[in-house]
């Protein structure tokens, strides 16, 4: 299972990096979205995918999933929501101001070096 997940995570990261490197502003945003999904699954997989019960105290269950990665991911999910929203607004405000979404044209001019 971990092997499958690792490959899946690799694909997610590949797609994310490819999108981030593209010239379209919107694709960069989509890329960061994919990147955070990949990161969440990565943390989960590194911790191990075994465990037959959720990490909630129960009379019968003894083989819990590892709660720590889950707690870390929960934080990460909410943060990535905030960051995605921020990036989204940053992107469309940039587009509104500069009338372009071509990343190749967005560079500081020499006067401001």
């Amino acid at each position: 299972m971990e092997l499958l997940m690792a490959i899946l995570i690799g694909v997610l990261f590949t797609a994310a990096v490819y999108l981030i490197l593209s010239r379209s502003l919107l694709k960069v945003i989509l890329g960061t979205g994919l990147l955070s999904h990949g990161a969440h699954l990565l943390i989960l997989t590194m911790g191990g995918l075994g465990g037959s019960a959720p990490p909630v105290l129960d009379k019968e269950a003894t083989n819990f999933a590892d709660p720590l990665p889950q707690a870390l991911i929960l934080t990460a999910i909410v943060i990535s929501f905030g960051v995605t929203a921020f990036m989204l607004v940053l992107a469309y405000r940039t587009y509104g101001e500069h009338k372009t979404d071509n990343m190749n044209l967005m560079r500081g001019n020499d006067e401001h070096d």
């Binding site: 909410v78 905030g82 929203a85 989204l88 607004v89």
Partner: peptide, 13 residues
């Protein structure tokens, strides 16, 4: 904080 931030973002956009 979660409700406040998320709603601030959504209302602003």
């Amino acid at each position: 904080v979660v409700v406040g931030s998320a709603m601030t973002i959504i209302q602003s956009i």
